[in-house]
Design a protein around this nucleic acid. Structure first.
Length: 419
RNA sequence: GUGGCCGUAGCUCAGUCUGGUUAGAGCACCUGGUUGUGGUCCAGGAUGUCGGGGGUUCGAAUCCCCUCGGUCACCCCA
């Protein structure tokens, strides 16, 4: 591994090709899917004043213990963004664009926590946020777009879980009922859950500890505490999902870690991944957040999908493979090397993907480099070709057949053979 | 943040329990066999502060302590 040399900081890593190419393709697919629905890209800053994230709620772990914060030279307390919803909504409050404000984003987030596979201190997400409409059909649209995105990647084993947390008032009544339920059986709860109960009773529903299973199963359900208005909203969401044919499971115990969610919440689980970290994406409605950020009361809904975990899910399902090669043509120059200088430039300018070997190595070594580049064709220029104005085109993937052609026709011939 | 396991060549690992000559293997890499031809084969070659620091010892990859990193579980989430 390493000597006294530098290493990437804990919880971070270098993404090398071809993984880097694969990530970029993933973002391109996402941009196409949401772009086709009129969503516009937004690029928020990577850090914010810490207060922006503190608006996410005091019981939210992301702000309570996972914030990457520091003081800058101006004495401001700055935090690297743990997620992008807060930044996007802050930007909405700051610029007041016309609604509906439909945006998408892609980029890194930072959380200070113990790293493991599929969980890094710097991790990428893609997502959408929409400010303005209260319409439940919009919730369904965002969910549908995420679903189509997974489909486009080739993922087949993704499960959509949906739930409604009700309005802020519904939620308040429900939390009271939950608190009563758990307090009455306090002694049966695990020690960890008793601590969670004090901070946020709903989060107890998330417990995976044996001791808590019975009590969690017996807990009152949010869906029984919805006001008529919230229940109607939720029904409209699920009916819209039915109408477009996106399969889902209603999970009345789905609680998400961010405190700002109201009404619709949803999560995407990759069944091909281990259950402990199978959440590849999630989102919901946050009708109170814009006002928290200083905008007029404005409903909002959105989701974020984890790039790293989505790619792990793709690995597990054997889909969305990384590219096999970076170039299609490899130039081998067995003369003094000047032919390769000119030829690579000409072919690239013609739109071909072309590489070559360096350091004046033997033809055998250059051919080996050509093979390893995974290019489909080699263009060979030796003394004979140079003298006669020809070039040899050799097939590297099939039987290795080759032909010698006029240098002037090389570009057209390469294009034709690569088709 | 708490606990378990792990860290030897670019990669995957053996060697660690039972300290002892120049620290090994496979793959990958380089050169040659083929002075103009890769992918197979054959021959040869290069590469390690044994994660880092300290300690015990005549002697440490091996034993002890600290530290950094990875990994898994918890917590939580992407």
């Amino acid at each position: 591994m390493s000597d006294h040399a530098f290493r990437a900081p804990k919880g971070t890593r270098d993404v090398l090709w071809p993984d880097s190419a694969r990530r970029r393709f993933l973002v391109e697919v996402f941009a196409e899917v949401v772009g086709s629905a009129g969503y516009l890209e937004v690029v928020p800053p990577i850090f914010e004043h810490i207060e922006v994230f503190q608006r996410l709620g005091p019981a939210t772990d992301v702000v309570r213990k996972e914030m990457y914060a520091f003081e800058d030279k101006g004495g401001r307390t700055i935090a690297l963004r743990p997620e992008q919803t807060a930044s996007v909504v802050r930007g909405f409050a700051e610029h007041r664009p016309a609604v509906p404000y439909k945006t998408w984003y892609a980029g890194p987030n930072f959380r200070y926590e113990r790293a493991q596979k599929g969980r890094f201190r710097q991790f990428d997400q893609v997502g959408v946020e929409v400010l303005g409409p209260y319409d439940p059909h919009l919730d369904a649209e965002t969910i549908t777009l995420a679903w189509r995105f997974y489909e486009r990647l080739g993922l087949r084993r993704v499960t959509l879980l949906v739930n409604s947390l009700g309005s802020a008032e519904d939620r308040g009544r429900y939390v009271d009922a939950l608190r009563v339920h758990f307090e009455e059986n306090r002694d049966a709860l695990s020690e960890e859950s008793r601590a969670t109960l004090a901070a946020n009773p709903m989060r107890v529903l998330d417990s995976k500890r044996e001791a808590d299973i019975e009590l969690v199963d017996a807990a009152p359900l949010m869906l029984d505490h919805l006001s008529d208005d919230s229940a109607e909203h939720f029904t409209a969401v699920t009916e819209a999902l039915d109408a477009v044919g996106v399969p889902y499971t209603v999970n009345p115990r789905l609680v998400r870690g961010l405190d700002y969610y109201v009404r619709t919440t949803f999560e995407f689980a990759a069944d091909a991944l281990d259950a402990s970290q199978n959440a590849v994406g999630g989102g919901g409605r946050y009708d109170g957040l814009a006002a928290e950020m200083g905008a007029p009361e404005t409903p909002g809904v959105g989701f974020a999908l984890g790039v790293d975990r989505t790619l792990l899910a793709c690995d597990a399902e054997g889909v969305f493979a990384a590219p096999a090669s970076a170039v299609d043509v490899f130039v081998v120059d067995a003369t003094d090397g000047t032919e390769a200088v000119v030829l690579t430039d000409r072919l690239r300018s013609a739109g071909l993907r072309v590489d070559r070997a360096w350091d004046g190595r033997s033809m055998k070594a250059q051919m080996r480099a050509a093979d390893r580049s995974a290019a489909v064709l080699a263009v060979i220029i030796g003394e004979d070709e140079r003298a006669s104005g020809m070039a040899t085109v050799r097939d590297l993937r099939g039987d290795g057949g080759q032909e010698t052609v006029e240098i002037g026709q090389l570009t057209d011939i390469l294009r034709a053979r690569l088709r």
